[in-house]
Amino acid sequence: MKVEVEPDKCIASGQCVLIAGSVFDQNEDDGIVVLLGSEVTGGEEDAVLSAARVCPARAIHVLDGQR
């Protein structure tokens, strides 16, 4: 599964980091999302899909492997 983020849309709510901290982080200066890796495997897929669903800014996009 591939994932992308739109930092310009991010409102720094941090939900993605709480749900999938191995894939997402936040910039220390402003809290904006930082993608730690665009390729997501196995056990991380469900968490990334959940993070994309709960993102209030819709700044996370799953490009393939959607369920």
Rank of each mutant, 00 (worst) to 15 (best):
G21M: 02
A51N: 02
S50M: 13
D8N: 14
A20F: 01
V3A: 02
Q26C: 01
G37H: 12
L36Q: 05
R67S: 15
V48E: 01
E28H: 11
P56L: 09
V33T: 06
I60A: 00
E4G: 07
C10K: 04
I60S: 02
D29H: 08
E28D: 12
V34K: 14
V3H: 00
S13L: 11
V17T: 07
L35R: 06
A59F: 10
S22Y: 02
H61Y: 13
S13W: 09
Q15Y: 15
D29L: 14
G37M: 12
K9M: 11
A20G: 05
R67W: 11
S50L: 14
I32H: 09
G42N: 08
R58N: 14
L36W: 05
V3N: 01
V54H: 10
A57R: 09
R67A: 15
T41W: 10
K2S: 08
R67N: 15
D46F: 04
E44L: 03
A47L: 12
A57S: 13
E39K: 10
A59D: 02
D29G: 11
S50F: 12
E4A: 11
I60Y: 08
E44R: 05
F24G: 02
V23A: 05
G14R: 12
I11W: 07
S38G: 13
V3Y: 03
M1A: 12
E4M: 11
C16T: 05
S50Q: 14
C10N: 01
D8M: 09
D25N: 09
I32N: 04
C16Q: 07
C55N: 04
V23E: 01
A20D: 05
A12Q: 04
E28V: 15
G31W: 09
G14S: 06
A47G: 01
I19G: 04
G43H: 08
V40F: 03
A20K: 00
A59E: 01
L49K: 14
E45F: 00
D30F: 07
Q26P: 05
S50N: 15
D29M: 11
K2H: 14
E28N: 12
E45N: 03
E28M: 13
V17D: 03
E6Y: 14
P7V: 07
K2Y: 11
A47Y: 00
G21R: 04
K2F: 08
C16Y: 06
D46V: 01
L49N: 07
V62R: 03
V62A: 05
L63D: 06
I60H: 05
R53N: 12
S38E: 15
R58T: 15
D30L: 08
D64N: 12
V34D: 00
R67I: 10
G42D: 13
K9C: 01
V17L: 07
G14E: 04
Q26I: 06
Q26H: 08
H61F: 13
L35W: 10
